[in-house]
Lab assay of single mutants.
Amino acid sequence: SIVTKIISIVQERQNMDDGAPVKTRDIADAAGLSIYQVRLYLEQLHDVGVLEKVNAGKGVPGLWRLL
């Protein structure tokens, strides 16, 4: 499923980069989806406690990390 793919992308990127959070844009590119589509999935995963959003604010790139 797309959700499983997104989780594995975040996991893979974090492992490659010493646990650093992953940008929404990088996840979207790797999943082959638009940034808006991916954001909806990321928000859902956040709501159920799978991911945390590391930063927030208007015009700030979203950074995500697995919990």
Rank of each mutant, 00 (worst) to 15 (best):
V50H: 03
V38W: 01
L67R: 15
K5Y: 08
A30K: 07
K53P: 04
Y41C: 04
L42Q: 00
L45C: 01
Y36F: 11
A31I: 15
E52F: 04
G19Q: 06
S34L: 04
L51R: 00
L63M: 12
L40S: 08
G32H: 07
K53D: 08
I2E: 04
V50C: 07
A30G: 07
Q11T: 09
L45G: 07
D29L: 12
G32Q: 07
D17G: 14
D18C: 11
Y41L: 12
Q11I: 11
D47R: 15
K53W: 08
G62S: 14
G62R: 08
R39C: 11
Y36C: 09
M16I: 09
P21D: 03
S8T: 10
H46N: 07
L67I: 15
N55A: 10
L63G: 15
I6S: 00
L33V: 06
I27F: 01
L33D: 01
G59K: 06
R25C: 08
A30M: 07
Q11C: 09
V50P: 03
Q14N: 06
L67M: 11
I6E: 02
L33P: 00
R25A: 13
V60N: 13
I35P: 05
D26S: 04
W64L: 00
K23F: 05
P61W: 12
P21W: 15
P61Q: 14
S1D: 13
R25E: 14
I7V: 08
V60P: 10
A20L: 09
L51A: 01
P61E: 15
D17S: 15
D26C: 03
A56F: 08
A31H: 00
I2H: 05
A20P: 04
K23E: 08
Y36H: 13
K58H: 11
P61N: 14
L33Y: 04
Y41N: 00
T24M: 03
R39Y: 10
K58I: 11
K53M: 06
V10I: 15
L67F: 09
R13P: 02
S1Q: 10
R13Q: 07
G57L: 05
K58S: 11
I27E: 00
L33K: 02
A31Q: 02
E12V: 08
G19K: 05
G57R: 07
S34G: 07
V38R: 00
A56N: 12
Q37G: 03
A31F: 03
M16C: 08
A30T: 07
D17Q: 15
V38T: 14
K58Y: 07
M16E: 13
D47S: 14
A20I: 07
R39W: 10
Y36S: 13
S1Y: 10
Q37M: 13
A20Y: 10
V10W: 02
L51C: 02
V50W: 05
H46V: 15
L40D: 06
V3T: 08
N15S: 10
V22F: 09
L66E: 02
D29G: 06
I2R: 04
I27G: 00
G62N: 15
G19S: 06
Q11D: 04
I35E: 11
H46Y: 11
E12A: 10
D47H: 14
L51W: 02
P61F: 11
A56P: 11
